[in-house]
């Protein structure tokens, strides 16, 4: 599924409890991170729950991410973000702005400011990880 498909599926839901259910289900489809990866070095700071984002594989053409959280909703948001970013080239990941995607999904108005901050902190981490793997 790509970002556009996700937006369409999201818009098809009538109410927010269905949307959250869908987000939670997406998160449950993400593999759990090994405990070995759940370390401070991989943590995204600025979230009320614990969030880890790591690189699973990286080449000049693509970076694939994994992520996990002790919050089901946040893990779902990680999955939502990875639909947009995972598997793209490092340059694309750095360039693509999550905000319009976030707004199309209706999340901008719906997450609390602190949760939104966590979301943007995850975006920042994804971009930083990609930038580290981009060659000049």
């Amino acid at each position: 599924m790509d970002a556009q498909e996700l937006v369409e599926r999201f818009e098809a839901f009538d109410d927010w409890s269905d949307r959250y259910r869908y987000v939670i289900d997406l998160g449950r489809q993400l593999p759990d991170l090994d405990d070995a990866h759940k370390v401070d070095a991989n943590k995204v700071l600025g979230c009320q729950s614990q969030v880890w984002v790591v690189v699973r594989e990286a080449t000049n053409e693509r970076v694939v991410f994994d992520g996990d959280s002790d919050s089901s909703i946040v893990k779902g948001l990680i999955a939502v973000l990875l639909v947009l970013y995972s598997g793209r080239s490092p340059a694309d990941i750095v360039a693509i702005d999550a905000k319009p995607y976030f707004e199309q999904l209706g999340l901008a108005g719906h997450l609390s400011p602190s949760r939104a901050n966590g979301f943007y902190a995850m975006v920042a981490r994804i971009k930083r990880l990609a930038a580290e793997r981009a060659t000049g």
Binding site: W16, S17, Y20, Q48, S49, S69, D70, S71, S72, I73, V74, S112, R115
Partner: peptide
């Protein structure tokens, strides 16, 4: 084992204000 924040977010969808954390 659900994160309290998740419960609070879903309660808020129904207009119920609680505190989590």
């Amino acid at each position: 084992a659900h994160h309290p924040g998740d419960v609070g977010t879903l309660l808020d969808l129904d207009g119920v204000a609680v505190r989590t954390g």
